[in-house]
């Protein structure tokens, strides 16, 4: 092989790529928290809901976890305009990922909801807590503690999975990498560096999630 690596040209673009990494994290955070809200209601509906609520939650999860996220976003982006709804690429990506994350998080959170001891919920009720306060002060901490590991993994998946936004022209990390490599024709170098940035992002994400878990929920999570 007589290919000479030239990283210098790519490193010049590092600030541009790091800017993309910030967008990547933003997409991951937004989808994670949006999905977590949907997932919490979905999980509560599945465990404590009536027949109708349970059916709706189950249908939603089945539909969204059995189709690729990419296909869901394509539908939002290309099919909705026919119904008169035009979405920006970023909006379509965010809505798609939030709905998708919501379905997976419903299942993850359900395991957590099931881990809450009924006796603690009853004790909270007899102290006069409202339903919302019971969720907030008694159930969520248990849920968070039980599902910490799958939740962290899922966040990492979202950081990586958000790269599909590039297909819609969103300039996050992968999108910017494509821009650079089409201009400088140094694909190997560009994507090597991008891969390294992804690793740094996910390692930082996992480590900070573990720290948050230790601090907030007394989870004995490994930081590394």
């Amino acid at each position: 092989m007589n290919y000479t690596f030239q990283f210098a040209a790519v490193l010049e673009e590092l600030p541009y790529l790091l800017g993309g990494a910030v967008v990547t994290l933003q997409i991951a955070f937004a989808s994670f928290w949006g999905g977590a809200v949907i997932g919490l209601f979905g999980a509560l509906a599945k465990v404590y809901g009536g027949v109708v609520a349970r059916r709706i939650a189950a249908g939603y999860v089945t539909l969204l976890t059995n189709t690729p996220a990419l296909v869901q976003i394509f539908l939002l982006y290309y099919a909705l305009p026919d119904a008169g709804i035009l979405l920006e690429p970023m909006t379509a990506v965010l809505i798609g990922l939030v709905l998708n994350a919501g379905a997976y998080l419903t299942e993850i959170l359900r395991a957590g909801v099931l881990s809450v001891r009924r006796s603690e919920i009853e004790a909270a009720a007899t102290l006069g807590m409202s339903q919302l306060q019971i969720v907030r002060y008694v159930m969520l901490p248990h849920i968070a503690k039980t599902i910490y590991a799958p939740l962290s993994n899922f966040f990492v998946w979202l950081v990586l999975g958000s790269s599909l936004a590039a297909l819609f022209g969103v300039e996050e990390l992968t999108g910017r990498a494509i821009n650079i490599s089409t201009a400088n024709l140094r694909s190997i170098e560009t994507f090597t560096i991008v891969a390294a940035i992804y690793i740094v992002l996910t390692v930082i994400a996992s480590a900070s999630l573990a720290l948050v878990g230790r601090w907030a929920f007394r989870v004995k999570a490994k930081v590394f």
Binding site: R117, S119, E120, E122, A124, M129, Y137, P141, H142
Partner: peptide
């Protein structure tokens, strides 16, 4: 009420178990 199975909130320390109702409710 106090139950047979002391169902304290496992995620809170003793002081917080005792203060949660006065503070939040």
């Amino acid at each position: 009420i106090v139950f047979q199975q002391y169902n304290l909130f496992q995620n809170m320390n003793v002081l917080r178990n005792v203060t949660i109702a006065p503070v939040k409710i």
